[in-house]
């Protein structure tokens, strides 16, 4: 598929990954919520960077920052973290 479109495979793996995290942290919904929060902050900052392109040159939240936040959240859940790394653009 073209780089501008999300392929069904990417969509499916995102769905099953979100589902996996949700199920893994059924007893700790705060961890799942914090994960969603990190993703939303990342997305929001990416949008702000796009809108202000040519401005002060801020790059928003980097993939490294996202990864380290998720790493501290998923401590001891190495499989989840490894899988998350597969979604990151420069992992």
């Amino acid at each position: 598929p073209p780089a501008s479109e999300t392929s069904p495979v990417e969509f499916d793996s995102a769905i099953s990954y979100v589902n996996k995290i949700k199920n893994r942290f059924l007893d700790h919904p705060e961890i799942y919520r914090a994960f969603l929060e990190i993703l939303h902050t990342y997305q929001k900052e990416q949008l702000e960077v796009k809108e202000s392109r040519g401005g002060r040159g801020s790059s928003g939240m980097t993939e490294d920052e996202v990864f380290s936040k998720v790493a501290s959240l998923f401590k001891g859940q190495e499989d989840l973290l490894a899988e998350f790394g597969q979604f990151l653009p420069d992992a």
Binding site: A3, S4, E5, T6, S7, E10, F11, S13, A14, I15, Y17, V18, N19, K22, F35, L36, L39, H40, Y42, Q43, Q86, F87, L88, P89, D90, A91
Partner: peptide, 27 residues
């Protein structure tokens, strides 16, 4: 079966966009 809230769906959206960017950066 998937019981997704709007928040879950937007997480799926962010993750699949990340995967797409990754593919774009690898190709």
């Amino acid at each position: 079966s998937y019981d997704f809230t709007p928040l879950d769906s937007s997480a799926v959206y962010v993750l699949s966009s990340m995967a797409r960017l990754r593919r774009a950066s690898l190709s």
